[in-house]
Simulated assay, not measured.
Amino acid sequence: MNKSKTERHASVWDALADTAEEAANLKVRAELMRKIASLIQDSGWTQAAAAEHCGISQPRINDLLRGRISRFSLDALVNIAASLGQQVRIALEVA
C-alpha cells in the first residue's frame, strides 16, 4: 500500500510560495488585481479604453484581467489603482 504524504496549507498562496513573506505579497497583489479588474469591468470599458485610463498598454490590461499575478508588482498595481482615482489603504493584522 502506497501512502503519500499530503501537505496542508492555510491558503493557496502558502502552497504556491516558498516563504510566508512571498505568500503575503501574492495575497495582497491578487486582492488588488481583483479589485482593479472589477472597477474596469463595472465601467464597461474595452481593454483599449481601460488601458488609456490606467496609463498602461492593452496587453498589460489583458494580463491584469486574466489574473497573471507574476507580471505585476505591488508598486505597479498601486499606480494603476491611483490612475483610476482609487486610494489603496493598508491594514496590518496578526497572521
Score class of each variant (00 low, 15 high):
18 D>V: 14
63 D>P: 00
9 H>G: 07
92 L>H: 15
74 L>W: 02
92 L>P: 10
12 V>K: 14
19 T>L: 07
52 E>P: 01
88 V>A: 05
41 Q>E: 15
58 Q>L: 07
93 E>N: 14
5 K>N: 02
73 S>L: 04
64 L>W: 01
45 W>G: 02
59 P>I: 05
55 G>M: 07
24 A>C: 13
88 V>K: 10
90 I>L: 15
10 A>G: 11
41 Q>G: 05
23 A>S: 14
20 A>H: 13
92 L>G: 14
31 E>S: 11
62 N>S: 13
79 N>K: 06
75 D>C: 01
13 W>M: 14
86 Q>H: 03
60 R>W: 02
69 I>E: 13
42 D>Y: 10
51 A>I: 00
78 V>I: 15
20 A>Q: 13
20 A>M: 11
81 A>K: 11
55 G>E: 08
29 R>P: 08
33 M>W: 07
49 A>Q: 14
85 G>T: 04
36 I>E: 00
32 L>I: 04
39 L>S: 12
29 R>S: 11
19 T>F: 02
72 F>E: 08
75 D>N: 09
35 K>L: 01
17 A>P: 07
56 I>P: 00
71 R>Q: 06
83 S>N: 15
90 I>E: 13
19 T>C: 06
19 T>A: 09
27 K>F: 09
77 L>R: 03
42 D>L: 04
84 L>G: 11
94 V>F: 07
24 A>Y: 09
16 L>K: 12
57 S>N: 10
69 I>C: 05
60 R>I: 07
49 A>C: 00
70 S>V: 09
78 V>D: 08
77 L>E: 09
52 E>N: 09
43 S>K: 04
79 N>E: 07
38 S>E: 09
53 H>S: 02
37 A>G: 13
32 L>Q: 05
8 R>Q: 07
79 N>H: 01
32 L>M: 10
45 W>D: 04
94 V>H: 08
90 I>Y: 12
10 A>V: 13
20 A>W: 03
88 V>W: 03
90 I>S: 10
48 A>P: 05
58 Q>D: 05
75 D>L: 08
57 S>Y: 09
59 P>F: 07
90 I>G: 06
6 T>D: 00
39 L>R: 07
95 A>V: 14
35 K>H: 06
56 I>D: 00
65 L>T: 05
70 S>Q: 11
